[in-house]
Design a protein around this nucleic acid. Sequence first.
DNA 1: AGGTTGCATCAACAAACATCAATACAAGCC
DNA 2: GGCTTGTATTGATGTTTGTTGATGCAACCT
Lengths: 125, 125
Amino acid sequence: MSKQGLELLGQETADACCEGLASAPLDDERAAALAKVFKALGDPVRLRLLSMIASRDGGEVCVCEMTPAFDLSQPTISHHLKLLRQAGLIDCERRGTWVYYWVLPGVLDHLAGFLTTPQAAGATE
Amino acid sequence: MSKQGLELLGQETADACCEGLASAPLDDERAAALAKVFKALGDPVRLRLLSMIASRDGGEVCVCEMTPAFDLSQPTISHHLKLLRQAGLIDCERRGTWVYYWVLPGVLDHLAGFLTTPQAAGATE
DNA sequence: AGGTTGCATCAACAAACATCAATACAAGCC
DNA sequence: GGCTTGTATTGATGTTTGTTGATGCAACCT
């Protein structure tokens, strides 16, 4: 189930959906929504967790594999994963004993599109 | 001084310089450097300030124009601008009485490239 | 059933952050 | 020189965040 979402939501990639940061001044509402996501990215542990999940072949990583990769307690890792989930960046599912996390498709590319400036969006290099 | 946060992002062009979030697990150092930048973006006021500057024709905005655009005190706006500057996102110059801010070129597109997943990067155009 | 393991939640604390009033600094004007 | 305006810095305060030990819950295994 988790692997198929990416192709099905393929039309949601970076461009065309909504205005970028540099195309017009942000209004309060959009700024607040976007700030939530960037705030979730604004911690080195969460960035590493997200990267660990996003770079994984198969797209899924077990918590049992992430927790020992940090010099932090298990509740702390669980807390950071929760924040990433609440930001809409990842989701998880329990399968038997273990819990697996994956990156929600399209969200990262969406953010990238938001940051891309009009000039760079048109230029290939 | 203030560009430290983005040193690890490099000055090279957006696409070929460094690995993206989804290409390999981030190491501590890069995660810490990137987290600083994302943390700077993780506040609605700073996002609006940055957008206000980035979307401006001519690329420069006077502080005297930004301060009244928010329901916040002048020191607070100045503080947020300082954080954006320390994150390596913007720079400023005093010209006579007024101070002008602009977005440092390439940084936003660099961040966008970092967030772009390999699949989407190939499918962009 | 009882015991063990994996993960989430709770309660509590220190550190970091957003905000403002007061103040300091810089540049123009009288 | 003194006065005014624009911006940055300081000091203080209430809030948020990162972290942990303790606890709770779910799924396995005898």
